[in-house]
Write a protein that binds this DNA or RNA. Structure first.
Lengths: 136, 136
DNA sequence: CTAGGTGCAAACATTTTGCATGGTT
DNA sequence: AACCATGCAAAATGTTTGCACCTAG
């Protein structure tokens, strides 16, 4: 149950928060926009305002429960923060998102930052392309 | 003069387009939002509608004259497309943006994409942090 | 009981679009 | 002259906020 995460984050255990956590955990696609979450809630007969979805997602982000990404296309995408700091590949044809993590790249980025006197806080790597099995 | 680029792109050589090209070329900071460009135009006593700025920047992007980036913070950032495919480091304190390019990372990304059957079109790498000389 | 959470509608910020007018080739 | 570009205002999008009401602890 997500109630533990919520308490740990100092957030009251409310119906909307539990439901949204469930959606994020169980969704087939783990990368959802606020609108996606909202629709998933409606699909499970849960009436929660879109404003609340945004508020909850923002609180979850502050609490380190979710991560917010800005892929091309305007709206923010959220996913559970598993702690590993993975990066993303986005299929431009289907919208499918996959994750990857590469130590060689990570350490190279650290080195580049160091060379330049840049205190690295976090980074975003996004690969845009098409999965071979999705081509026509 | 930018008129050559414009003609090559099949765009009529108009006052707004020339001016906007000038701004992009001469700005101290080469990474500008549409609003930044708009204000720079006003500062040089050029009255051009914000809608036109957006339209022109979008056309420039389609023509390969500028690149559009989505750094954290909502609005799109534009820069001249020099052809080299550099990446960015963004100072979270000052907003300063620097560029870098690393062949090791590039080739590693290619390899990762290949491994996964992903036809790479382009990528975005953004480092967020603070420049040491900007810390207090 | 009380602090904090929620819903709704309105406000916001950014970007896009319709349409009548104006400028380039 | 024909076509494309521009300005303005309005619309569209994605997200945030004010406020009255409600609920978890």
């Amino acid at each position: 149950m997500g109630s533990i995460e919520l308490k740990k984050a100092g957030l009251k255990v409310t119906h909307p928060r539990i439901k949204i956590l469930e959606i994020l955990e169980n969704a087939a696609n783990h990368h959802l926009s606020a609108e996606d979450v909202y629709r998933a809630l409606l699909d499970s007969d849960t009436e929660i305002g879109l404003a609340t979805v945004y508020r909850v997602l923002t609180q979850f982000e502050a609490a380190g429960i979710v991560k917010r990404h800005h892929f091309d296309g305007g709206q923010a995408i959220f996913e559970l923060d598993t702690g590993d700091n993975h990066d993303h590949m986005v299929c431009m044809k289907t919208g499918r998102v996959e994750e990857f993590k590469d130590e060689m790249i990570e350490s190279r980025l650290q080195a580049i930052a160091k060379e330049r006197g840049f205190k690295l806080s976090h980074h975003s790597i996004i690969l845009y392309g098409v999965y071979a099995d999705n081509e026509e």
